[in-house]
Design a protein around this nucleic acid. Sequence first.
DNA 1: GTCCAGGCAGACG
DNA 2: CGTCTGCATGGA
Length: 299
Amino acid sequence: MAASGISATEAFFPVADYDLAATLDGGQAFRWTRRAGGWEGVVASRWLRLEERPGGLRAETASPTPDWSWLRDYLRLDDDLPAILATFPDDPPLRAAVAACRGLRLLRQEPWEGLASFMLSATKQIVQIRQCVALLCERFGELVAVPPGRPPAHAFPAPARLAAATEAELRACKLGFRAPRLLAAAQAVAAGRLDLDALRGRPCAEARAELMRLAGVGRKIADCVLLFAYGFQAAFPVDVWVLKALRELYFPKRRPKPARLRRFSETHFGPHAGYAQQYLFHYIRQRAGRGPERERNRR
DNA sequence: GTCCAGGCAGACG
DNA sequence: CGTCTGCATGGA
């Protein structure tokens, strides 16, 4: 299904129920900025602007783009959202979460960007993760073409570039104790000791085990990469927010531990558990006044 | 000032 | 096994 392009730098993608704010600014990606009613970011080393339009999404690039498949892939436009939602268990918490987050989608990010970004996420707030990622991109990422009059934009830095940096330079991006871990990961990928592309075809559990061999990558960060980059929809990252959501919404009396809740999630939420996870994550943060809606309204 | 953030790894029992 | 703690940094 080809997008109907107005010109080579614009395209329109027909799609129902695609909430850009919830999807781009909801804690699965860290490079999107709201600007003039749309969202601007960098995907696959291309500057990109996205806008919600009636019946779909409008996309704009800085350079002529003959093939938009990379963007369809990133936005997961081929996911049949109603069919996915129909596989969810019909329980009150999930019904409420789906109702409150209509149009929330998963993205398919590049593995290295996803891995590096989530390695920075340990005990950091989402706004701080964005700051760190922005600093890394400004200081180490290649410049990408932008339309006239726009501020400069950078690609996410390649593993080899970060591998050549010093720990001090990374710490200067406010990474703190995460700096040596990211440096080691970049060196492992750059040297070919960890082949991120090869993980695409592996079973989920094997890919997870490979990622977790990295210092600084435990179960939660590995699951984020599996879900948000590799597209393993059974991956179910349990962070402090999902922990809170599962406890409050499903086990209000008891206080199950993370491992117990992970086992619950493996059987309860079905084949698209990762989608359910993102709805619960977004829903509980929204209820706590921490969602992207509030951050936007506070300006 | 205190608590905590899309955790992880090592120490200790 | 399980629980506790340090780790950098800065929002809330």
